[in-house]
Design a binder for these strands. Structure first.
Lengths: 233, 233
DNA sequence: CCTACCGATCGGTAGG
DNA sequence: CCTACCGATCGGTAGG
């Protein structure tokens, strides 16, 4: 008697659960969504091994075995959350860096575009604090098959992002908006900058993040100053 | 029949074990030192909950209960390692920033001192990769009493370091070696820079760290450029 | 340093 | 969605 389809075929159930009575957040799909949220939170709080399925079930108000109506295993649950986090990051880092129309007459605006890009990243980190934590777990705490599968995903995303950055900075350099540095170096510098920002945000969870947020604009200006010093403008 | 003193009174045993026969690295004190090394490695690899005492014992070639001749508990072991890591960091970050003799005629050399400071940090991170990982665990993965005890230590160290940085940058500003920025902002900027560097190093474990190391000098110059642009020199 | 053992909890399954 | 239960492993103790 399937209360829910196995975790791969959940197409038509969705509509039914929405038509059925009860609070909209408590349907079949609702429980699964809540599980994903609770699991991300717990992984972020305790690490991979430290996050137990029993605790997740408890926070959801159900029994542990019932979780297996929504997931295949703890490992699969983590991988799914990691994929969600990486996709959310991809969306947040957005198309601001897009260098499709380069070389044209309007090549400018790289500073503003990078600033917008930064805003997207920091907003994402504010709104989805667990996503960042999951990525950190994934690079440092896993072992065996799980480590390998997570590693592939992280590496692919990293390579892709770095390539986009290099294109962006190469374009900015051609436009004379930054110094004549190696675009690869500028990309590395940017990665260092935002990794530093995100690490600090991780540290200052619990109130002091405001201070950092206040200073973000100034930190950004200091960063850009390094890139642009002695450039055309 | 005490093979070793309980983990607090280990004064005279040390000499005896050195006088006794056998390989010098296998004495009573030797096992304890090896345990600390193995434990740091395992905590760094798997996280706090994921690092089991049985695995530590296995790597040492002894049985799990024997560990309790050297430690009081898993929690106490972690706290000790965290203290070691923080102390090692303190030593590595060294006295280069010391602003004891400021205002005198020789106020200069801030750039070189900060560069030396950076070298100390990066060398430390290279030689003690687990120490950084332990600090990260401590801020993100613990719970209960352990979280609280670790939090106190980390906060104290952080506050102390930040204060030293602010003094340093205030001195550099008076000397006209950097722009007229708020010293607190410059300290924040520095923290962001090295957190970014250390995060990247964490990511690139396994070979590609070389690339980063090659670029370190250039990244440093880019950073300093931001601080010094439009300053006296 | 060891063997033997503890209760608690782990991820996961059977079966309804 | 549940109860009942699995073998494995957890941190830790007793006792020599």
């Amino acid at each position: 008697m399937p209360w829910i389809a196995t975790p791969g075929a959940s197409t038509e159930v969705e509509t039914e659960s929405r038509l059925g009575g009860g609070h909209p957040a408590d349907g079949i799909q609702g429980t699964r969504d809540r599980l994903l949220a609770v699991a991300a939170e717990l992984f972020a709080e305790r690490g991979y091994a430290g996050a137990s399925l029993a605790e997740m079930a408890s926070r959801l108000g159900i029994r542990k075995p019932s979780l297996y109506n929504h997931i295949e295993s703890k490992e699969a649950l983590f991988i799914e959350l990691l994929d969600h986090s990486l996709e959310a990051w991809r969306e947040a880092s957005g198309p601001e860096l897009g260098v499709g129309v380069e070389g044209g007459g309007s090549g400018g605006g790289h500073r503003r575009r990078l600033r917008d890009h930064l805003r997207g990243i920091m907003d994402f980190a504010d709104e989805s604090p667990h996503a960042m934590a999951l990525c950190r777990l994934a690079v440092s705490q896993l072992s065996g098959d799980l480590e390998q599968r997570a590693g592939e995903r992280l590496l692919a995303q990293r390579v892709d992002y770095q390539a986009r950055l290099e294109s962006f900075f190469a374009s900015a350099r051609r436009a004379g908006e930054v110094g004549t540095f190696d675009p690869r170096l500028m990309a590395l510098s940017w990665l260092t900058f935002i990794d530093g920002l995100l690490t600090h945000q991780l540290f200052s969870t619990g109130g002091r993040a405001d201070l950092y947020r206040e200073r973000l604009e100034e930190l950004w200006q200091l960063f850009w100053r390094g890139l642009a010093a002695e450039a055309g403008r």
